[in-house]
Amino acid sequence: MTAEELQALRTRLEETLPDGAILEVQESGALVLRPDALLEAGRLLRDEEGFDYLSNVSGVDWLDQNEFEVVYHLYALRRGERMLSTGQPDGAPLATGPSPENQLSVAASAEAKRVSAEGMLGPVVLKVRVPRDNPVVPSVAGLWSSALFQEREAYDMFGLQFEGHPNLKRIYLWDEFADHPLRKDYVPEEA
């Protein structure tokens, strides 16, 4: 994603979101958001900017700053698909749908040309920071179902509370386990 595209995206987000929702734009292009603005920003990115695919949700423990961070990587999947089939991100959508014959059609690979708007394929990186003693983050599982398991993992590993998650419980460790092992101050039990 080029600098201009990022700037354009930032402007559009700033227009809609309340003042001060974007705390910082990092050098890498990541947008640091205020936690209460996350859902609105997510809705905007998904419904109006076409970032329909949430690839990655990862927790980070910044012990020195006494904060947890959640990082989201978003991609515009349908736009990528259109670029692939027509060579243009804004071309007509590929005709798909069930066919009785169940035949596989081969998408024209064409020369998937990289046109100017291509950078909008992503990733858009969103970051949210919350205090370590009250790690409550709004859940984005309602926007992208791919967060369902990944948020559970972040809860398991960091103890992040995803508000609004339909089934927030441990995913890897057993229920009786008390700690959150990917926290930087985690001390493993003596064997």
Binding site: P98, N102, L104, S105, V106, A107, A108, S109
Partner: peptide, 13 residues
């Protein structure tokens, strides 16, 4: 190279 796609999205596809 081509990118094959399915049509139904079932196990057979």
């Amino acid at each position: 190279f081509d990118v094959p796609v399915g049509t139904v999205g079932d196990v057979y596809d």
